[in-house]
Amino acid sequence: MADVGTLALRIFMLVVLLFIAIGFFWQPHDPHAVDLSQSLEAPSLVHWLGTDHLGRDLASRLIVGAQSSVLAIAIVLVSSIGIGIMAGAAIAIGPGSVSVILRWLAETVLTIPTFVLALVLAALFGAGLMAIAAALIVVTWAPYALSLAALFDRLRAEQYWQASLAMGSGLPGALHRHLLPNTLPVLGALAGADAGRAVILVASLGFLGLSADTGHPEWGAMIHEYRMFLFSEPRLILAPVFATTVLAFLLNQVLDRNADV
């Protein structure tokens, strides 16, 4: 991808993040304020994206709707990277049996369909962000662990690694200097893909009508709520659809520096 394109993507991403961040404190209108006299108004300067069938401001609902996705991304990334780093270290330097079991576990969970797992967990523990996050974490820690272990294995064979240890630098220092720079692009690409998956899964379950709290706007739940307006007022559906798509796409692309598969 050309540098100009990458830069444009990053700027666009920043703008989107800024909008989401501001949305935590301020929205153009109260996203919950029902006003039936203003239902289904066309986009205007007052209502940027118009209003829905209950007269609620669509833009405000869209901005607040991002918060579920952001929360899911945060939970999934922190947990899966944390677990992945620990498991990867255990595979790379742990005793043989631990390493074999963990590697088998990592390869096994990769075949679990996240979508079905999220459905099952939603049935067991109630629909909501935690079910979705848990379903993703069960699967997403594995690629971090496997690629970290592979990187570390390769590093151990390198002369500069052995030299750095021989010169007396401690393991943490050597890891910081030699493992981290090699790891960050890989972690970034995985994290971008996982963040995108989190956004998509949250919206997918919401779209199926399985979001936790129907009172709080969430993009998938909005699509579910507005589904009968697909042909009469497509704006109501297309706004959250494009929001989900753009955020998932940006997360995938911006964090993935070696986007050429």
Binding site: A193, G196, V199, I200, A203, S204, F207, G220, I223, L230, F231, P234, I237, L238, V241, F242, T244, T245, A248, F249, L251, N252, Q253, A259, V261
Partner: peptide
């Protein structure tokens, strides 16, 4: 490949339907 990873399936389906 990029689309398959980054686009939500229900969104693509809904846009196609629309």
């Amino acid at each position: 490949a990029i689309g398959g990873q980054a686009l939500p399936a229900f969104a693509v389906g809904l846009i196609a339907l629309w």
